[in-house]
Amino acid sequence: MSHESHQSHQSHEPDLLYTDTEDALRDAVRSLLTDRAGHQDVLDRIETGDPYPAGLWPALAAGIGAAGLLVPEKLGGQGASHREAAVVLEELGRAVTPAPYLTAAVIATETLLALTATDGPATAHTATEGPAAALLAELASGERTAVLTVPLTTAPRTGFTATGPVRAVADAVAADFFLVPRPTGLYAVPAAEATVTPTTPLDLTRPLATVDASGAAGTLLAGPEAARAAVRRGLLAGAGLLASEQLGLAEWCLEETVRHTKERFQFNRPVGSFQALKHRMAHLWLDLVGARAAARAAADALAAGAADAELTVAVAQAYCSGVAVRAAEECVQLHGGIGMTWEHPAHLALKRAKADQLALGSTGHHQDVLADLMDLPAPA
């Protein structure tokens, strides 16, 4: 599946079903995460202050080839699309995996891809020379990771320009270099030339840090106008595929809750047989059906380069973030006392869901974008 085949901006019929290739990719990623980054492994590692499981990123990025899914084959990538990347994020969301996939393999990669596209969107092909192309090849191989130095809460439409230290940069501690948007353009700065100060986040599985790259010259990748467009493209892809992470997280929460309520007995009956609890889980299942449709539509629109991609992403984020939080809250509550403990992974899911609710634009922001795109006036 070539990357170029997904860049047409012509209208298309959304395809929300998973292909055999996507199912095979899911199986490979889930097997890897089960072996190397299960919930107990994550719980053990966050106690150490370094949540990233040892050896996981090379196995995921290079072994499976997940880091290069969005990168064309001519640059050493897999030449796949956002649909396949969405499947990876679903699995990472299910396991609440500490890995810089969203930040490096999606946001930073898409930002660089915008700088290699030539001849306009309708007939775009990829330039194989220049600093952006060289960095893409390194990202695709999994040898290096890059992070766009913007706060995690930055929405696609708002953009960002760094004029000093940047707070709340996700996965900065795992980056080999930073993509720094400055008033004069977009620069690549080696991590060794920047000051990275870790901070304590709500979600301990996605580390945040303050990054100060103001003292480093860096390599100019693009001028101001191209940089703004590239950053917006990277953040839009990130917001769209974040919905898939939220979907995977919500699915695990429901499955784990159903499993627990089948096994937990009260009054000589499984608590899952109580009508009130069955209704709550049924409502959550209906929420998940909608979330799956919204997340898959966003991934498909991004993959196809659809004209309504921004609209579809806004719908996905406006809906999926709330579903993930509700699913995580229900998971904690319906587990009873054990769900409130540090030893159970339910709190990992709840913290990730709450952090994701603000990441790449809040629900309210995406609702405003949706209203603007649909020309819906605000109530008087």
Rank of each mutant, 00 (worst) to 15 (best):
L358E: 11
E84M: 12
Q246K: 07
L288Y: 07
T219C: 04
S362Q: 11
G142K: 00
A80G: 14
T48C: 10
G79E: 05
A276P: 04
A378K: 11
L186V: 14
G142C: 03
L60F: 07
E343P: 02
A299D: 01
G65A: 07
P270H: 09
V147E: 04
A155G: 08
T154Q: 08
D356K: 05
L220W: 05
V150Q: 03
E255Y: 03
V323M: 02
P201K: 01
L75D: 00
S5D: 13
P156I: 04
T153K: 07
L302F: 06
R167A: 11
R233K: 14
G336K: 05
A54N: 11
R269C: 07
T219N: 07
Q7M: 14
P207H: 13
H279E: 12
C320N: 14
T184S: 12
T154M: 08
A80E: 14
T200K: 13
P377G: 15
A192H: 10
A188L: 03
T34F: 13
A80H: 10
T126L: 09
Q40L: 13
F177L: 15
C331G: 02
Q10D: 13
A162Q: 05
G234T: 03
D15L: 05
V88I: 09
L179F: 04
T154H: 08
V173Q: 13
A213C: 12
L135Y: 01
E110R: 13
A299G: 02
C320K: 07
S5Q: 15
A146S: 13
E193N: 08
D375F: 12
A37F: 12
H366G: 03
V271T: 13
L221Y: 01
R326P: 04
L16P: 02
P53T: 00
E138H: 13
H260A: 09
A250C: 11
G76A: 10
V88L: 12
A140R: 10
T257C: 06
L311M: 15
R232G: 02
A324F: 01
G339T: 01
Y319L: 12
A133S: 15
L136V: 10
A172I: 00
P201R: 00
V29D: 01
E263K: 15
A307T: 15
D308W: 06
D356Y: 01
A250S: 15
G364Y: 04
A188F: 02
D287K: 09
T34W: 07
L236I: 02
L92N: 03
L60H: 03
G322F: 00
P131C: 08
E22I: 04
L17H: 10
L43S: 13
G93I: 01
S214P: 06
M340S: 10
